[in-house]
Design a protein around this nucleic acid. Structure first.
Lengths: 228, 228
DNA sequence: ATCACTTTATGATAAATATCACTTTCGTGG
DNA sequence: CCACGAAAGTGATATTTATCATAAAGTGAT
C-alpha cells in the first residue's frame, strides 16, 4: 500500500539529504514510494532483481539467507532508519539475501538507477550515503564477529540485552522474533535457545511470559554476555 | 619504505579511476604513498586513528580483531587489489579492526580527507568507489555466513578450497596462514584444524607437507564443504 | 650448532552442543 | 468454539568440539 510522501519529515533527511535543495527534494520525493507492510510480508527474496534502494522508516525487518533444507540464517535485524538495501545493492544485479517483516513496517523505495544518477551529480549526497552505508555495514560485521566468539550462554545473553536496548520500553519488552529465529540469528539450535532462557529464568536473571521478557539482573546478564 | 608511484599501471585504475583525467591522476598520485611491508608487519591496529584509505597492490594481509586473552578473530584475508580500508573508514574516526601482513605486500595509502574531498567533487569516482566497497563488504559478510553455517569438517574443507583457488599455482599450494590462524579464521580450535586436516590426509583427500598442501580429491572436499 | 620458542601433531578426556522424542501451550482459520 | 499446526518447553542421549597433556618437528637468534 502506497502512502503519502513525507520526506520533509524524514529523520534520515538531515544526515542524508542535507545536500538537497527544497526543489531537488521535491523531485526526489516524486521518484520514491513509501510502502506499508505487515508482519510476515516478504520485501524481496534472495535472487530477486535489485530494483530499488530501500530503507526502513518504521517497524522491524530481518535480513536472512535460506539454506538448502529451509534452515534460515539471519544476517541482522534492522530497525527504523536502517538501510534494508545494504550490501550488494550497488554492486550486484540480484539480491544476495532476503528481507522479511517482523513488525508492521513502512519502507521507502527509491529506484536504484535514479539513486546512481543522483550519485553522479551530487558528491555530498553520495558521501553521506556512503558514510551511512559504511556505518551500518561495519556494525553488521562487528556484530557478526561479536556473536561468533560467544558460547551458547553468551549468545543468548547478548541477544536478550540487544533487544532490550533496541526496543527499550522499560524493564519489560516484547521479543520481536521467535525462539527459532533467535536460533537462526545466533547460529545455535532452537532447543538450546529455549533451554538457556529457562536457565536464566531459574537463576532469576530474567522473567519470561511468552515473548514478553523482563530483564531482572542486567549486570549478571552482561557478565555472561562478556565472558561467555 | 616508500616506492615509486605507478598509478598508471594500477589494475584498479580502470574500475576506480576511469573518472580521472591524466592531469587529475597526477595530482592524485602525488597525494598517495605506496609502501612495502614484510611478513609480520602491522599496517594498523584496532583503535588507531584512521588517517588513510588503503588498498593492497600486491601480497596478502589479514584483517582481524584481538580479544581479551590474545585470542584473535580473523575477519578476512585480503589479496591484491582488495581494499584494506573497508568498513568504517568513512564513518569511524578510529579503526575497528587490525591489519597484519601475511606475505610481503605493497599497499597504497591515500589521505582520507583527500579521498573525501574528491568524493565531493567527482560523482563517478565516488560511485565506482562505493560499488567496489559494496562488493567487497558483501563478499565478506556472505563468506562469514558461509563459514558460520558449516561444521568443523566443512569449515576446514571450505578454507582449503578457498586458498587453493585464491593462490592457485597448480595442484600444490602453500598455505598463507598457520593452523592457528586458520582456526582464528574459522572460529574453531587449532587442534581441530590440525586433526581434521590429518583425517583428510588419512582419507587421501589431501597431501600435507608442512604448509604445502596438495588437493588430491577436490570433488570429495567440495562435497564435505557443501554438506558439512 | 645449540638453545629457546613456536608450530604441528596426536591421544585421552571433559564439556558443550545437537539430536530425538515427547508434552504442553499458544494462536489462527474454519 | 474447536481443531489443527506451530511454537515453547523439557529430558535423555548421541555427537561434536574443546580442553589438557605431551611429544616431535620446525624456526630463528646468537
Amino acid at each position: 500500500m502506497a502512502i503519502k510522501c513525507d520526506c520533509e519529515q524524514c529523520e534520515l533527511r538531515t544526515a542524508f539529504f542535507e545536500s538537497f535543495s527544497q526543489d531537488e527534494l521535491g523531485i526526489f520525493c516524486s521518484q520514491k514510494a513509501d510502502t506499508a507492510y505487515k508482519r510476515g510480508d516478504i520485501i524481496f527474496l534472495e535472487g530477486d532483481e535489485v530494483k530499488n534502494f530501500s530503507y526502513l522508516k518504521s517497524g522491524l525487518v530481518k535480513l536472512y539467507k535460506t539454506g538448502s533444507l529451509g534452515k534460515d540464517q539471519i544476517l541482522t535485524i534492522a530497525g527504523p532508519f536502517d538501510f534494508v538495501s545494504l550490501l550488494g545493492v550497488f554492486s550486484e544485479s540480484h539480491h544476495t539475501y532476503s528481507v522479511a517483516v517482523l513488525e508492521d513496517s513502512v519502507l521507502c523505495h527509491i529506484d536504484i538507477s535514479y539513486m546512481k544518477a543522483i550519485a553522479l551529480k551530487n558528491g555530498l549526497y553520495t558521501l553521506n550515503l556512503m558514510q551511512k552505508l559504511s556505518a551500518i555495514t561495519n556494525k553488521i560485521i562487528l556484530e557478526s564477529m561479536d556473536i561468533r566468539k560467544r558460547n551458547t550462554h553468551g549468545k543468548v545473553a547478548f541477544i536478550l540485552l540487544k533487544f532490550s536496548k533496541m526496543i527499550y520500553t522499560g524493564p519489560v519488552f516484547e521479543l520481536p522474533i521467535s525462539r527459532r529465529e533467535m536460533a537462526e540469528y545466533l547460529g545455535i539450535t532452537t532447543e538450546n535457545v529455549i533451554r538457556t532462557m529457562s536457565e536464566f529464568r531459574k537463576e532469576r536473571l530474567i522473567r519470561i511470559n511468552g515473548r514478553e521478557i523482563e530483564i531482572v539482573d542486567q549486570k549478571a546478564l552482561e557478565q555472561i554476555s562478556s565472558f561467555g
